[in-house]
């Protein structure tokens, strides 16, 4: 998987994240790796409430587990992966939060395709910052295609 594909995967995962999953990722970043029971307590829930959301995060590659002998705390230690840290950075980004709020609001102030173009531009900026110029160009091209498509269809003023 190249960097651009990874960034798109991060973007898709960030959009699907529930509030509880965001809290779980945040506490893994702030307080370090933890067992199931510890993670549940950190977000003031119980293990049965966080088990499924954690499994989903694991399936998406945002957290990984390590077998440990943790006694009554459990035997699987959850840690944040690089992709998980990337998703967390993105969901904590004020621009992403504004876009998510706009998407959730009942009055569609921004069209989904336009939001996608803006996010692709943002991913392009991130790739450029990381020195991945090819990846950045790829994102900018995709954003440009969407913008052209919207202009042709009268989606943009």
């Amino acid at each position: 998987m190249n960097e651009s594909q990874l960034d798109l995967k991060i973007l898709a995962a960030a959009r699907r994240l529930t509030d509880l999953q965001r809290q779980l990722l945040q506490c893994l970043k702030d307080k370090g790796p933890g067992l199931l029971l510890e993670l549940a307590v950190r977000v003031l829930k119980f293990p049965e409430d966080v088990y499924e959301p954690l499994r989903e995060l694991q399936a998406n590659g945002l957290v990984e587990t390590q077998s440990v002998s943790g006694g009554q705390f459990g035997s699987e230690l959850y840690t944040l992966t690089g992709a998980g840290a990337g998703v967390l950075r993105l969901v904590n980004d004020p621009m992403f939060q504004r876009e998510a709020q706009a998407a959730a609001s009942p009055t569609p102030s921004l069209e989904p395709r336009r939001q996608e173009a803006e996010l692709l531009n943002k991913l392009g900026d991130l790739a450029k910052e990381k020195g991945d110029l090819d990846g950045a160009m790829n994102f900018y091209k995709q954003a440009l295609d969407i913008t052209r498509e919207l202009s042709a269809g009268g989606g943009l003023p």
Partner: peptide, 18 residues
């Protein structure tokens, strides 16, 4: 290295809990 650290810290926490 991180796995080794995690194992030690988890065992310490489990002992403290007991």
């Amino acid at each position: 290295a991180l796995q080794l650290i995690n194992s030690v810290l988890t065992r310490q926490r489990a002992r403290l809990l007991a």
